[in-house]
Amino acid sequence: MKTDALIAMLATNAAPVEAGVLLRRYVLALGAGLAFAVLLMAVVLGVRPDLPEATRLPMFWVKVALPLSLLAIAIAGAVRLARPGVAIGRVPAALPVPVAAIWILSAAALVAADPGQRIAMLLGDSWLMCPLNIAMLSMPVFAGVFWAMRGLAPTRLALAGAFSGLLAGSAGALVYCLHCPEMAAPFIGTWYLLGMAIPAVAGALLGPRLLRW
């Protein structure tokens, strides 16, 4: 087929393109993914029984703020990476901000604490399960955002995969806040971050394979 024939073929009866495909895909991916993650959390792990009281504590909202701010940054990065020729700009530079904030809080909490308490603050009662549970809860959104990205056109596949994975990880961590009873900043600053990093690294590794077009 000559190029002119291909052009004629592509232009013949080319259907009008609907606007807002990117927004629709991401709203659907995040909405359905979060709903499944909440269901998974409620069924497998259970909502923490003292949730109403916990929401009155500032530390609960600090805990929520970490994944929520990372989620916002990851969405900003992913939607830029989903379109050819859109620069990601300063989005990656925002990533260290919430991380530094939780680490400063952690350091302050550890310094103020009784030396005998420090290990307990870091490990809590669930340090091993925390990252694994966050990774598990990130899976529905992970599937959703990779589906969304596959319908778009990323050109930097590993980076697009990493931001998609971080998006899923931070959404998973957000949902995990509804179950997890841990309230110490050093715990959040270590195991929550590790839990969110697992899908982010998985996304970076899978991106070049899953997102190619």
Partner: peptide, 23 residues
């Protein structure tokens, strides 16, 4: 050409066209 046709829904009118095509 086939790729640009298949991905034409990823073009945003507020974006420079050259940057999109070049990428």
């Amino acid at each position: 050409l086939l790729a640009i046709h298949n991905q034409r829904h990823t073009y945003d009118a507020s974006q420079p066209l050259t940057a999109w095509m070049h990428a």
